[in-house]
């Protein structure tokens, strides 16, 4: 069975040093076979919530010049925080022994 949305976003971030939202969100759209601005915004909000809760960090930001999602849109680069990794262990999103 697939992971819950936030679990998937966290798991993707655990495998790389960082992801820009415009790189990460298309992975989620493919995983859950959805498309359109509604779902792009849905996953953006999920990333906002994860950042507010301290599970992921915003490490840089820039304004979309029209090549990523939409011109003028604020884009964020995220990385998993130490707390996020710990919470992934707590919730079984990272197997035992995997750092």
């Amino acid at each position: 069975m697939k992971l819950p949305h936030k679990g998937f976003l966290l798991q993707q971030l655990s495998q790389v040093p960082s992801y820009w939202d415009y790189q990460l969100i298309p992975l989620a759209l493919t995983e859950y076979q959805v498309q359109g601005l509604y779902w792009i915004n849905h996953f953006s909000i999920a990333l906002d919530e994860l950042a507010a809760a301290g599970l992921i960090n915003r490490i840089s930001e820039r304004i979309d010049d029209g090549t990523a999602i939409a011109s003028g849109r604020l884009l964020f680069e995220y990385s998993l925080s130490r707390f996020g990794r710990q919470r992934m262990h707590d919730t079984g999103l990272l197997p035992e022994g995997v750092e």
């Binding site: 507010a52 809760a53 301290g54 925080s81 130490r82 996020g84």
Partner: peptide, 10 residues
Amino acid sequence: SVAELREAET
């Protein structure tokens, strides 16, 4: 200040 709700380590 509301955007980061917790004092989490990076």
